[in-house]
Design a protein around this nucleic acid. Structure first.
Lengths: 227, 227
DNA sequence: TCAAAAAATGACCGTTAGTCAAAATCATGG
DNA sequence: CCATGATTTTGACTAACGGTCATTTTTTGA
C-alpha cells in the first residue's frame, strides 16, 4: 500500500496548491471577481480538475476559511496555555486576533464570506463546512475559557453567563475589526471625518472599554447609591 | 407643468414599488438567490424597465439600504431630541437599533450587503451610494453626539476621542447584531452549545459591559494602586 | 386622427459556475 | 516492453443570470 499513500499525499498537496492559488487571487481581486477558470489556469490545471478537489466555488472558499481558522486557533491555543489572570488572557486573545488578521488579511475576507453564507440560504453541507464550524466553536471556547478563568481568579465580574459574555466579546471584536478594515475605502474616510483610527487603536480602546467601562466613576457610584 | 409633476410622481411611485417587491423577495430567498427577472415578473414589469429605474442589481439593493437607513435615522434622531444623560442616550440608541432590526430584518441583510460592497472592489458610484454613505455618517453622528453629551454632563468618561469611541460602539453593535441574527441557523446553535441568547439579552449585556466594564472592582482598584 | 416623442419590453449577448463524454495517463499481467 | 483495462484529467458544452438595445406600445399635442 505504498503506492496508495503516495497517491494520497500527492492529491493532498494538489489540494493545498489550489487553495494557495485561490488565496492569492482573492487577495488580488476579491472573492466576487475571482473565477474558477482563472483559478484553474493559475494553478496549471483544467477546470474540471478543480471540481475533483472541491465540490464548487463555495466549498473552495470555505477551505480557505478552514485553513485560516485553524491557523488562528493554533495561536489562540498558545495564549490559553499561559498562566495569567483571565482578563489578561482576554486582552491577549484580542491582540492575537488583530495581529493575525493584520498579517493575513485574506482570512478576514474568507471569514466574512463564511459568515455571509450562514446568513444566506446557500449554506453548504459537507466535511469542510463542518470543520469551519468546529473551528469557530473552538475559537469561541478559548474566549469562554479565559472568561471562566477570570471569574475564578477574581479578575472578571461573574454576574453574566460566560458563554453569553463570550458571544458578545467575539461578535463585538469582529464588528470592530470590520470597522477598522473598511476604513481603507475612500468612502469610509468621510465617516471618520478625516481622522485615521488604526485597527490597533480601535481594538486597544475596545479592550479598555469592556474592561473598565465607559461610565464615569462618579456617575456610576451615584447610580449605585440610588439602587 | 401639471403633467410633468404627475409623471414624476408616478415614476417615483413605480420606483418605490420595485423596491417593495425586491424587499419581499430578498426576505424570502436572500440577495444571492433573487434574480432581476424574478423582481421584474413579481413587479409586473419587463426586465428592461427595471433598468430604467436602477442602473443595476447592486444599485437596486443599495436603494433598499438607503430606505432602511433613512427609516432608522428618523428613529435615532428622535432619541437625540430627548433631554437625558449621555450614557442613557447611548443605551436608548442601541435599544432603538435592535428594535428596528427586529421589526425589519430585511434591512439587516441590506446593511450587511452594503458593507460587503465597500469591502470588495465592486463599489458603486452614484447618487444612491452617496445617500447610503450620508445616512451611515448621520447614524454615526448620533452616537458621537450622545457621547459628547455624556462627556459634558459627566455621565461618560472623557479619556477617549468620542469619534473613536463612537466607531467602536457602532462596530461592536453591528457585530453583536450579526452574532444574534446568525443564531437562527442550525449550525450556529452548536456554538451556543444549546443555549439560546436573544438579541435583546446580548445587547442588554453589551450595554452593561461597555457601561461599567467587566473587570471585577477589587481587581480594578488593585491595579490602579499599582500604577 | 395622426405623427412624433417617450416609455416599456423581452429577445438577445457575454460571462461564469458547473458537467461530462472523451482523451490522456497510469497500473498491471504476460 | 507491450497491451489492455482502470483511473485521472480535461476543456467544450450547458444553464442561468445580469445587463443591453432594437423594436413595440403608449402617450402627447396639434
Amino acid at each position: 500500500m505504498e503506492k496508495k499513500n503516495r497517491k494520497a499525499r500527492e492529491r493532498e498537496a494538489r489540494t493545498e496548491h489550489i487553495i494557495d492559488v485561490a488565496e492569492v487571487l482573492i487577495s488580488e481581486k476579491g472573492i466576487e471577481n475571482t473565477t474558477m477558470d482563472e483559478i484553474a489556469e493559475r494553478a496549471g490545471l483544467g477546470k474540471g480538475t478543480l471540481y475533483l478537489h472541491f465540490k464548487g466555488k463555495t466549498v473552495l472558499f470555505l477551505a480557505i476559511c478552514q485553513r485560516g481558522s485553524a491557523k488562528l486557533n493554533r495561536l489562540l491555543g498558545r495564549i490559553l496555555a499561559q498562566d495569567l489572570p483571565g482578563i489578561v488572557l482576554i486582552e491577549k486573545l484580542g491582540k492575537t486576533y488583530i495581529g493575525f488578521i493584520k498579517d493575513n488579511p485574506v482570512y478576514f475576507t474568507a471569514f466574512s464570506y463564511y459568515e455571509s453564507l450562514i446568513d444566506s440560504q446557500n449554506m453548504v453541507e459537507g466535511a469542510i463546512a463542518e470543520r469551519c464550524e468546529e473551528n469557530a466553536q473552538e475559537a469561541m471556547n478559548y474566549i469562554v475559557r479565559a472568561l471562566q478563568i477570570g471569574m475564578h481568579d477574581g479578575s472578571i465580574k461573574s454576574d453574566v453567563d460566560p458563554r453569553e459574555l463570550g458571544l458578545i466579546i467575539w461578535g463585538a471584536s469582529k464588528g470592530i475589526m470590520n470597522m477598522a478594515y473598511l476604513k481603507k475605502s475612500r468612502q469610509r474616510e468621510k465617516i471618520m471625518q478625516g481622522v485615521e483610527f488604526s485597527a490597533e487603536s480601535l481594538f486597544g480602546h475596545f479592550i479598555d472599554l469592556i474592561g473598565t467601562g465607559m461610565m464615569h466613576p462618579d456617575y456610576q457610584s451615584k447610580n449605585e447609591l440610588k439602587q
